[in-house]
């Protein structure tokens, strides 16, 4: 069984001449009568009756003209029926295709297409796309439309092209110029059969608007202007400056801005633009002074509100237009400068007494007007209360002696006016005269009622008229005496060393040994604050120790004593910032480091006479120098300044006393009193307060270090997890005297095992080579080892040492401190062999030796 268009007919034609177009036949007809029937569209469905069948012969005829655009094909269902009307066969389909003829022209979707394009657009820029349809058979030549521009207005030169297949209109070139033609009209034809001569056509119109761009440079109507103005006058419309611009009117491409290039430094002028006319109005907003500026040249330029188009931006050159301004002199008359003047008049002044002179100034010459007295200017009194004064040529005199009645009516004060008049110019200026009346007494103020003689101090604008009464002279003498006392006061303040004296004068801490103060004592600090010992920098001392073990409360004593012992010689000390450094006086650069120095400690150090500015500067320099050595080196690798306090303490990693709870406490009895006390603290026992500082330092007996302080020490290293012992942080610092100061180093965890902190601090010199050795420290836990080595051994091979027996499967706490006595024979190393099954080991070794050449050594096996 196969299906195909079995038959075809052409639309628009009479196909009856080819009837019958088909016939059906069933073999059943050989045995019985068969009736053939057809059904479907065009038969028993609209359009009816297109096809009919001869029921006997099965011949199918077409009866009328068909339209493909109405019914592109027909499906005729054919049946064979017996006499009872029953189907003898399964129905068959006969498909009849209607063949297309080009009976439909193209139709544009719009009568007039509207488009727009910027002038100066590049060639082949898409402007618009036309749309037209054809009702003939799709994908048939009869419906294939070809577009063509058949007319253009203006027709100077073709400016557009059209794609014959897609209908896209594009620019032919980049010569579109709105200033030449702002509108184009195209007539476009669409023809089917791909534009063939036998095709059908339709036409449409396209209207293309050319958009403006700022491709015209504005210019002024005139190349120069000359104007004349009077001085001291304002003008709202001094000059109209018209701007010529060819771009689209009222657009930003056309609107101009006139601006001053030079000449208006005094801000006398402004230019206001009229956006409707593109005319600028030059205004005088600040009066010109002929005496100051007689002529000036304004250089102005013009531009548009909008930026210039890229096509001309390279052509733009600022054109300067000159406006020559001539300032005319105006005779201004005179003016009182200042506008008022105060005189003192007392009761003893007689009639015709000259009170003073009050002259107006001629504005043209700047001179007092008495130069022209009786010639150009005359003076008269204006407001003259009680008619007290007379003026002549600026000289003010008393008409009569001021009486007590006048004094009372004037309420002790006279205020009048004087006029300076230039008759020919008809200009007048006014000055105010104020007189203070002194030496008058009302009935209640009469001197007979007072035992004290009144003091009259009259000061007039004329310095020659200064009068002092006896009491005034006395006041002056008192003033001189006070001034004389000042040097004596300064001298007495300068002796700031006197206790309690010189309040307000703070001695500058400049490394005086006496500046080591009482806080450097052994004992706990209030509030459990970690002590920070800041070095005292002796003048000219280049040796700086940057590390101090502050794990013990006697660190302070250590530092202070050491500095006393060392005196002015090779002096080494340390400084460790557990919480970072930051003070208000610190440079900004320092504030990049997190954390702050705890204020208490800083204050203590400052109070102790430390040069904090030096310390801050020094550490900042160190930090940046270290970071600058290698750009890839994180700056936080250098200065071990951290601030993790408050975010979790690594207490469990470095000797928190909590782990002691599970232990046999008896061993604590064998420890030194300090450790024992700390253990008591940890166990919640009642303890005595800390003892006073030990005056016999350095100690001759071993004293345990406070585990809590060790804990704080470790908290200064962020690499130690507060919860999980997985990081080993070891810092070693050895500071021999002489150049080459070693910096604190942060050693990455070589094994990833837990929580071993080793600190060494040596503040000595000589050949001392202390060392700390750890062997197989995997899985160590909670071991605090402290060794302190102190002694002024000269030239001896002093090695700080601490040997710890095997800790495999042992207890978790070993606290050992050994003090190396001066001159004693010392083992060579500090060794902790195989602390397996342990974690959280803190070892602190300090060797203090005032000899040179000491080298710190610390080794850890892999």
């Amino acid at each position: 069984e196969w299906i195909k268009f079995a038959a075809a007919c052409r639309e628009g034609e009479d196909n009856s001449k080819r009837n019958p177009i088909a016939k059906i036949h069933s073999d059943c007809a050989a045995n019985q009568p068969v009736t053939y029937r057809i059904s479907g569209v065009g038969i028993d469905q609209p359009p009816y009756g297109i096809f009919i069948i001869n029921q006997k012969t099965g011949e199918i005829n077409i009866t009328s003209i068909v339209d493909r655009e109405v019914t592109p094909f027909f499906i005729i269902y054919c049946r064979a029926l017996n006499a009872q009307g029953q189907d003898l066969e399964n129905p068959l389909e006969l498909r009849v295709r209607v063949m297309d003829i080009n009976d439909n022209p193209p139709v544009f979707s719009m009568t007039t297409f509207l488009g727009q394009i910027e002038e100066n657009s590049n060639a082949n820029t898409l402007v618009m796309k036309l749309n037209a349809t054809d009702a003939d058979e799709p994908n048939n030549l009869n419906s294939m439309i070809a577009f063509k521009i058949i007319r253009q207005e203006p027709s100077d030169s073709p400016m557009f092209t059209i794609n014959r297949k897609t209908g896209e209109i594009r620019t032919m070139n980049n010569f579109l110029d709105r200033e030449q033609y702002s509108q184009y009209s195209l007539v476009v034809r669409g023809s089917d059969r791909d534009g063939g001569a036998d095709g059908m056509s339709a036409e449409s119109e396209c209207s293309i608007t050319i958009l403006d761009v700022n491709d015209n440079i504005p210019y002024l109507e005139q190349s120069s202007y000359d104007i004349t103005i009077e001085e001291n006058t304002l003008h709202s419309q001094l000059l109209q400056i018209r701007v010529i611009d060819l771009d689209e009117e009222f657009s930003d491409n056309w609107k101009a801005i006139i601006f001053f290039i030079s000449g208006n430094e005094g801000n006398w002028f402004e230019i206001e633009m009229n956006e409707r006319t593109n005319v600028g109005t030059l205004k005088v907003v600040k009066p010109l002074d002929y005496e100051a500026v007689k002529n000036l040249q304004l250089c102005i330029g013009v531009r548009n509100v909008a930026e210039f188009h890229q096509s001309i931006i390279s052509q733009y050159r600022l054109t300067v237009t000159l406006i020559t301004v001539t300032v005319l002199n105006v005779v201004k008359g005179c003016v009182f400068q200042p506008g008022s003047k105060t005189f003192i008049v007392d009761s003893r002044m007689e009639a015709n007494h000259t009170v003073g002179e009050f002259l107006a100034t001629d504005c043209e010459t700047g001179q007092a007007t008495n130069k022209f007295k009786n010639v150009r200017y005359r003076y008269v009194m204006g407001n003259n209360p009680e008619n007290l004064l007379v003026v002549d040529s600026g000289i003010i005199t008393l008409r009569n002696r001021v009486t007590m009645e006048q004094y009372e009516r004037l309420n002790k004060r006279y205020e009048g006016t004087v006029l300076s008049i230039h008759d020919s110019l008809q200009r007048t200026c006014t000055g105010t005269i104020i007189m203070v009346l002194c030496g008058f007494w009302t009935t209640t103020e009469h001197p007979t009622t007072s035992t004290e003689k009144p003091v009259t101090l009259s000061i007039t604008p004329n310095v020659d008229n200064v009068h002092f009464g006896p009491a005034g002279i006395g006041l002056l003498i008192m003033g001189f005496l006070v001034l004389g006392l000042v040097p004596f006061l300064l001298i007495s303040c300068d002796c700031g060393g006197a206790p309690g004296g010189g309040a307000g004068f703070e001695p500058v801490p400049e490394c005086s040994d006496g500046a080591i103060h009482t806080w450097a004592v052994e004992g706990p600090q209030p509030g459990g604050i970690t002590t920070i010992c800041v070095p005292q920098m002796p003048p000219g001392n280049a040796n700086v120790i940057e590390y101090i073990d502050n794990s013990g409360v006697y660190t302070n004593e250590y530092c202070g004593r050491e500095m006393q012992d060392l005196g002015g010689g090779e002096r080494t000390t340390g400084f460790e910032l557990m919480d970072g450094v930051k003070t208000s006086a610190a440079p900004e650069i320092c504030q990049e480091y997190s954390g702050t120095l705890r204020r208490n400690s800083m204050r203590e150090c400052r109070d102790g006479g430390l040069n904090m500015n030096f310390m801050e500067s020094y550490f900042c320099q160190k930090a940046y120098a270290y970071a600058d050595e290698d750009e890839g080196r994180p700056s936080n690798d250098c200065l071990l300044i951290y601030d993790i306090e408050g975010v979790g303490s690594p207490a469990g990693s470095v000797g928190c006393c909590s782990f002691i709870e599970d232990l046999d406490e008896s061993f604590l009895d064998t420890l030194g009193p300090k450790f024992k006390k700390l253990a008591d603290i940890s166990l919640g026992k009642e303890i005595d307060s800390y003892p006073d500082p030990d005056p016999s330092w350095p100690p001759q007996s071993t004293e345990p270090i406070c585990p809590q302080h060790m804990e704080q020490l470790a908290s200064g290293h962020p690499s130690i997890s507060p919860h999980f012992g997985k990081t080993t942080v070891i810092s070693e610092n050895a500071y021999p005297s002489g150049p080459g100061v070693q910096h604190p180093m942060l050693i990455p965890d070589p094994l990833g095992y837990g929580n071993i902190t080793v600190r060494e601090s040596y503040t000595t010199s000589g050949t001392l080579k202390p060392s700390v050795h750890f062997h197989d420290n995997q899985q160590a836990s909670n071991v605090v080892v402290t060794e302190r080595v102190v002694g002024p051994i000269s030239g001896a091979d002093l090695h700080g040492m601490l040997e710890i027996p095997a800790l495999r499967d042992g207890t978790n706490v070993i606290v050992t401190e050994r003090v190396i006595a001066p001159g004693s024979s010392l083992p060579n190393s500090l060794t902790i062999p195989n602390p397996r099954e342990t974690s959280n080991v803190v070892v602190t070794e300090r060797v203090i030796q005032p000899t040179s050449g000491m080298i710190g050594n610390l080794s850890i096996p892999p």
Binding site: E1, A7, H25, L92, L94
Partner: peptide
């Protein structure tokens, strides 16, 4: 057999042929 034949008109020589384009067998 039930079949449909269509007429093939040869315009050149005016002859007419019938082609069975659809048939089905029982």
């Amino acid at each position: 057999e039930f079949q449909i034949q269509v007429r093939d008109h040869n315009a050149k020589n005016g002859t007419i042929k019938w082609h069975s384009i659809r048939r089905q067998k029982r």
